[in-house]
Simulated assay, not measured.
Amino acid sequence: WTSYADKADWIFCLVRTDKTNKYQGISFLLFDMMTPGVTTKPIKLISGNSPFCETFFDNVVVPKTQIVGELNRGWDVAKYLLGHEREMISGAGGGDRLNAIGAVVARNGLEDPILRAELAQFDVDALAYACMGEKFLDEAKVGRGHPAQPNMIKYVGTELNKRRHELLMAAGGATALEWDSERTNGGSPSRSWLRTKANSIEGGTSEVMLNVVAKRILELPGA
């Protein structure tokens, strides 16, 4: 999918420009969305929203002056962007959004001891995640950051965000399941919960993130 392609003015593509070089024969090319042959089609998600689109390129021609970086070195640019994207996506797992859980508990007078324990564990894990993020940021500032660290925080942050919304749904009870009602602001809890399912797919799946962490950070042997 392509996020908000129907609203974008430009899009980038990784295109094969050298068939003889498997790893370096890719270039980072910019496309004006008004270029003839470029069309988009929104994809409706289970949350009811359509932030993603299919993007079609039919006999599209663009000038080679729109290549970013060096010819055949587009993957270098893409990896840099992926690192920033994964850091951005991982930010959904913590921060001041933790207040939402406390608000639900206070409003509903939650008495379930098991759920209360799960909420407490989530708070502990979220604080640990925030500390990890600060550590990585400090290391990056002094040039000691590991290039694979964004994969780690992306995995932890997105999985944490999914847990957060699972807990919010559990704490909200039957009311949280209402799809269209004033008291749920048009089904905001359930729609947000469904949206988090994409967190562990977009920007690289959780399985891919774990593979990268295993190989590049833990330096485990391959299968």
Rank of each mutant, 00 (worst) to 15 (best):
G37A: 13
Y129D: 04
K141P: 03
V142L: 08
I43F: 08
A174E: 15
E134Q: 15
S50C: 14
T158K: 11
F57C: 01
H84K: 12
I11L: 09
N21E: 15
T40V: 15
L110H: 02
A171H: 09
L194V: 04
A100E: 10
E54A: 03
M34R: 14
E70D: 15
L194D: 05
L82Q: 02
L160G: 03
F28M: 12
F56A: 05
A148D: 14
V213M: 11
L45Q: 06
G93W: 00
V68Q: 04
T55Q: 00
G74V: 06
T20W: 01
M33E: 02
K19D: 07
P113W: 12
V62R: 06
M152S: 01
A106I: 08
K79D: 08
S27M: 12
V104S: 00
V60C: 08
V15E: 08
I46M: 09
L168S: 07
E54H: 11
A117S: 13
D9Y: 07
D180Y: 10
G204F: 02
E178R: 15
R116K: 12
W1Q: 08
Q121N: 14
R144H: 09
R183I: 07
V15Q: 01
N21D: 15
D123F: 07
A100F: 15
F31L: 12
L98A: 05
S181M: 11
R163Q: 15
G83S: 13
N72A: 04
A8E: 09
Q66P: 00
D125Q: 13
I101Y: 02
D76Y: 08
V62H: 02
V38I: 15
A223S: 03
P150K: 14
L30P: 00
R86M: 14
R195T: 06
K19S: 12
C13F: 02
V77D: 04
S50Y: 13
L81N: 01
N211R: 09
F122Y: 15
L194T: 03
V124G: 06
F57R: 06
Q121F: 04
R183M: 01
K41A: 06
A103W: 03
P150S: 05
N72W: 03
K162H: 13
G172K: 05
E70K: 13
P51A: 03
G222F: 03
I217C: 03
D112W: 09
S27Y: 12
S90N: 05
A223K: 10
I217R: 01
F136S: 10
A176I: 09
P147H: 08
